[in-house]
């Protein structure tokens, strides 16, 4: 399996001595699902956001899809990564002034310069996959949280990404809406999509992930298979965390 992502000694510090990331190193192979877990403020969001350049880092090296970036890499290189890596946010972040279909076709038309009809056809296909094709003409404000998040997933798929990043995709949802989003993510994983998911959903992690990464205070404490992590975590901090969220 060829690695899609390699992080080497990623370090980021906030004001005076607080390390958001502390020498973070890991690899992710194509077609694998990595779940990132950790207490709040542990750096899991920072980690996933450095991968597509929403956060900068101070030291170390990142290789995403063969594009190498370091602390001083320019905007253009990061732009190249963003065109091949999709992201789904906790707060959906749909564009409220655009219709659902326009939300999805904006990037293909603006970034990839595809013609409108082609982009719309592909957009409708993605909406069908997510089971929300009937909402294409509506605006984000008219949809439920779960539906909005599925639109956000469809939007992140519109550029045909090779890697998808999920930053707590179900944390802002009503409990009864969580499963529709997790099911959509599960289907993507089954189709062979490479994914990094920051989440607290243990059931999802157990069933879907290939690896679980546990991070605390900016440091990776362990990377294990879900079987090992959830039944026999090697690090005491991980066991404590699992006890707390169970």
């Amino acid at each position: 399996m060829k690695p899609i992502l390699t992080a080497k000694n990623l370090t980021k510090s906030y004001a005076k001595g607080i390390l958001a990331l502390n020498k973070v190193s890991f690899t992710l192979d194509q077609g694998k699902v990595l779940v990132v877990m950790g207490p709040s403020g542990s750096g899991k969001s920072t980690l996933i956001r450095t991968i597509n350049g929403l956060e900068t880092f101070d030291e170390g090296e990142l290789n995403v899809l063969g594009i190498k970036i370091s602390a001083d890499s320019d905007e253009r290189k990061i732009q190249r990564i963003r065109r091949r890596v999709g992201m789904v946010f906790q707060q959906f972040n749909l564009f409220p002034h655009l219709s659902i279909l326009e939300n999805i076709t904006l990037a293909p038309i603006q970034v990839q310069k595809r013609n409108k009809k082609e982009a719309e056809e592909y957009g409708m296909k993605l909406l069908c996959q997510m089971g929300i094709e009937s909402h294409a003409k509506k605006y984000p404000g008219q949809l439920s949280g779960g539906e909005q998040q599925r639109v956000a997933i469809a939007r992140s798929l519109a550029l045909k990404p090779e890697l998808l990043l999920f930053d707590e995709p179900t944390s802002a949802l009503d409990p009864e809406r969580i499963n529709e989003v997790l099911d959509a993510m599960r289907r993507l994983a089954d189709q062979g999509m490479t994914m990094i998911v920051v989440t607290h959903e243990i059931k999802f992690a157990m069933e879907v992930s290939d690896q679980v990464l546990f991070i605390d205070s900016g440091k990776i404490l362990e990377i294990s298979s879900p079987e090992v992590f959830f039944s026999n975590a090697s690090h005491e901090r991980s066991r404590k965390f699992l006890n707390q969220i169970n």
Partner: peptide, 27 residues
């Protein structure tokens, strides 16, 4: 305009200029 809107267009590879005029200004 919420910061998440900037992050959303950036994560889609849309340039700062395009994102500013197509996403931020209309809102």
């Amino acid at each position: 305009v919420p910061l998440g809107q900037w992050e959303a267009f950036r994560s889609l590879g849309i340039s700062e200029k395009q994102g500013f005029f197509k996403i931020i200004i209309p809102q």
